[in-house]
Structure formats: structure tokens, C-alpha cells
Amino acid sequence: MITPVPPSYADSARGRMSRLNITTQLAVIIPVGTLLVVLDSQVWWEALVLTLGLLTSILAVVLWARDDIQRFALPLLGTSTAVWTFGALVSGSTTAFYSITVVGPLIVPQLRRHRIPAAVGVVLFVAAAGASRLLVSQGSATSTAFHFVLVPTAVMVVTLGFMFANDAFYRVLEELDEAREHEAELAVARERIRFASELHDIQGHTLHVVKLKTALAEKLVRRDAGRAEEELREIHALVGDTIRQTKELAYAQRRLNLAGELENAKNLFEAAGIRVRIVRTAPTGERAGELLGQVLRETTTNILRHAQAGQVRITLSESGITIVNDGASGDDPPELRGLSTLRDRLAGFGGELTATQADGEFTTAAVVPSEVTR
């Protein structure tokens, strides 16, 4: 049986991913940011402002890795935009955009809606704040536009593109994880249906046979006490065997034996006064025997319960079984739920089960693919 991954495992994986994200990103952001602060600061208060931007970037990375950045989006964006505005209008720092190009791409791709307009807005802000330097700068307009407009805008666009791709990658991973969880849930559901079906096969078959043998023993108790006692012993053995099979099913150890099912079907039909003819054209493999044994058991139960048969023919080949009884009534075959379940089970192995009715005969035929017979 397949079971979903326990939540503690999933939480542990997310925790490891979070630590990996923090480590890899901070390993780049801290050294680069520190180097920019050292190289671009002329006075202590300028270094203080750039350091504030660096600390804001570090905090944003930590919160993003913990999937908690949206709660603090406004203060993070406010601080980083203030640092860039200060750098463009006051200090003339060409690297003050560093903080906004870290914080913005971490926040925008995680917005639930309007992500593209938000991305465009952030890019335009970076360009506009940088362009404002042209109003106060005494230097070359071309150099100012390059360092304060072109470079920061290009860095923001590239970083946003990378983070959008990164976000899409993580969304695909989440969808795959959800798909695996759904697949595990479906596997559990299929396993429960299979278990219920096999339990029905065991208990339903046994209870019907017990009913027949009990009725027979009741008729014989006054006429032939010895035969009645033998029937009761068989009932006792049958119930014990059913208990054993139920335990094996519960522990996934149950295996049907086709030869045993054939002998059991023959004895049951003869006890019910039905003539039986068995033809084997080739030996049947173990795995195919299990599947065909299930078909034989279910069909035997259906014949005893629903048909007024006088004769049953069972034909076995290497990859199939055909069971024909002459007790069909009406023109259309009855809807037999057990056979429908077996049809689905065989289809799962690539096999096929058919049930047809014609000229007073009901035919059940099952075929398994060649790879199952090996």
C-alpha cells in the first residue's frame, strides 16, 4: 500500500530548502554589498545609509526564504527606495540602487495578482529616481544617465527576469509535489477498493457455500447422519480456511492457487448437482493463475447464486479461461457487480474479461497478456 509522505517529512524538506536559499543568496549579497559600501562611501553618514540598504537586502532574503516576505513588503520597499532616492539626489552614490534591485525582485514575483504592472512600476521607479540625478548633477549628462539610469534599470530588469523564472520553477515543483500527493491518495483509494473487492470475494463466496452446505446437511440429518456430519466438517474447515485467507489478505500475503480453485469449483458444482467438464490446453503461470483463479471463483459463486445450471464447461489455456454454463435465463445477461470489478482489475494488467449470453448459455471469458503469463 502506498501512503502519502508524512507532513513532518515535507516540513523538513521545506526547512532544508529554506536554509539552502538563505545560504546561497547571502553568500553573494553580503560580500558584494559590503564591497560596494566600502568603495562608494565618501563620508560616514553615506556609509551608514548604504549599510542600511545592505541590511534591508539581507532581511529581505531571509524573509523570502521563509516565505514570509509579503507581510513586510511595504517597509522593505520603503527603506530600499529611500536609500536609492538618497543616493541619486543627495550623496551621488552610483551603487545605492543595490538594495532596491534585491528587495523588489524578491517581492514582486510573489504577488498574488498584478505582478507584471508591479514589475513595470518598480523598473520605472528605478529609472525615474536615477534620472532625477540629472537635475542636481553638475557632471556630464551622458555619464550620469549611464551610471544612474541605464545601469540600475538594466540590473533591475535582469534580476526581475531571473526571479520570475525562479518563481515559475518553484511553482512547477509545488505542482509536481501536489500531483504526487494526489497520486498517492488515489493509490490508497485504489488499494482500499482492491482490498474491499478481495474481501468480498472471500467472504461472499464462503457464506454462499456455507448456506448451500448447511441446507444440504439439514436435509441429510435424518436420512444420512454420516453424510450430514461430513458436510458439517466441511463447513467447519471452510470457515477456518476463510479466516486464514482473511488474515493473509490483511497482511498482503494472500495468493490464489488456480489448481485449488478448480478443485473447489468442481466439488461445489457436483455438490449442487451440476455436471462439470474441465479442459486444460496448456499450463498456466503463477501470476496469470492468480488472476484467472479470481475469475473462476467469482464465476462459480455467480453460477451457484443466479443460474439454474445443469452443466458447466471450464476451458483453461496458458493465458485465458472460459466458463460456460447452460443455466442462463432471459435474453440479456444480468449485471454482475463482482465481474465488473474483476473486469477493471484485469484491465489494469492489460487483460480483458467478457460476459456474454446466447442460446440459454452464459459465457465468462478472461484473457491476460503474454507478459503476465511468464
Rank of each mutant, 00 (worst) to 15 (best):
L346F: 07
R113F: 11
V151E: 06
L186Y: 13
E181T: 06
Q203W: 08
G360M: 03
L232W: 08
T322H: 12
V102H: 07
R275N: 02
A179D: 13
S317H: 10
G348K: 07
D224S: 04
A60Q: 11
L106N: 03
A196Y: 14
L59Q: 03
I116Y: 03
R222W: 02
P109M: 12
T206K: 05
V5M: 13
T3N: 12
G78H: 11
A265W: 12
L55V: 05
A228E: 05
P152Q: 02
E231P: 04
A13C: 10
A60D: 04
L256E: 15
I22F: 04
A179K: 15
G240W: 12
P6M: 15
N264R: 14
Y9F: 13
L199H: 04
L35E: 14
L89S: 06
D201L: 15
E198L: 13
W45C: 04
N257F: 11
G92K: 05
I69Y: 00
T94F: 05
I235M: 04
D67K: 11
P7M: 11
I2Q: 12
L304T: 07
S340E: 15
L54E: 01
L124M: 09
S137I: 07
V276R: 11
A288K: 07
V28Y: 10
V61I: 11
V372R: 01
P117K: 14
L89Q: 03
V172N: 08
Y251G: 06
S8T: 07
R19M: 13
E218F: 03
T23D: 08
A365H: 09
S197W: 13
L50C: 04
V102C: 11
R337A: 09
N325T: 01
A13D: 10
S18W: 10
S370M: 14
E290G: 07
L296S: 00
D67G: 03
L316H: 01
I278C: 06
L238K: 03
I58Q: 06
D224M: 00
E371G: 02
T242P: 05
T3V: 13
D344H: 00
D326Q: 07
E298N: 05
Q25H: 12
E46V: 09
R374I: 05
S99P: 04
Q311L: 15
V188E: 09
A145V: 15
A141W: 05
E371N: 14
R244S: 13
S99N: 12
E175Q: 15
K219D: 10
E178I: 04
L342H: 00
Y170V: 09
N267H: 06
A145E: 11
W45Y: 15
V28I: 11
